[in-house]
Design a protein around this nucleic acid. Structure first.
Length: 180
DNA sequence: GCCAACGTTGGC
DNA sequence: GCCAACGTTGGC
């Protein structure tokens, strides 16, 4: 069993959006980086642990606990000319981009970058490295253990309450939570 | 909006 | 296969 951190822009797909999806499961569309693709296509296994991370927003950080919920398959958006992720050079016979489904298990206490940096045991977390841009990164078991402990901090109840007031209508789709 | 860091492209 | 130019990411 391996562990991963997966970035999503909340304006695009927030953890609440994912929770509102059927089975709390979303296809991780739009990855157009070969290293990240290879993680999904080769390394991920069903049931692997995933940290759901909000990026490019006011408060970047880990916001949820998730898991890999499918094997790899072709990202359908690469063949859709209307999609921002369309790739004209990809052929259906030889898809260039693969993805997996990700199922959110629960929201967690928000773990922002300052909180993560403050923990000595997390110094080598890839996401904390300067200039890191990779949207999917492996997480060491030792880091996962620390993070799991932090997630269950005293503020988790507060986070859960916020989630409840905010997301009440399942299937309510177009609610874009204030983009940055 | 700035800027550092990194990936990709394309000329040679 | 090198490398400069360019584009993108993403925190601040």
């Amino acid at each position: 069993m391996n562990y991963w951190l997966m970035k999503s822009e909340p304006a695009d797909c927030s953890v609440d959006d994912a929770l509102a999806a059927p089975g709390a499961t979303v296809a991780w569309v739009g990855v157009r980086n070969y290293q990240a693709r290879n993680f999904m296509g080769n390394a991920m296994k069903l049931g692997d642990g995933v940290l759901f991370y909000h990026s490019s927003c006011a408060e970047p950080g880990i916001v949820g606990l998730a898991q890999v919920a499918s094997g790899p398959y072709a990202d359908p958006t690469q063949f859709d000319p209307a999609s921002p992720y369309f790739d004209a050079k990809s052929r259906p016979q030889a898809p260039r981009w693969q993805l997996v489904n990700v199922q959110v298990l629960r929201k967690t206490r928000h773990l922002g970058l300052p909180a993560l940096r403050a923990h000595a045991g997390l110094q080598d977390l890839i996401i904390l490295r300067k200039g890191n841009r990779l949207s999917i990164t492996p997480v060491l078991a030792q880091h996962w253990r620390i993070l799991a402990g932090l997630m269950d901090g005293a503020e988790s109840a507060v986070t859960a309450d916020q989630g409840r007031t905010k997301t009440d209508a399942p299937g309510a789709n177009g609610h874009t939570s204030a983009p940055s």
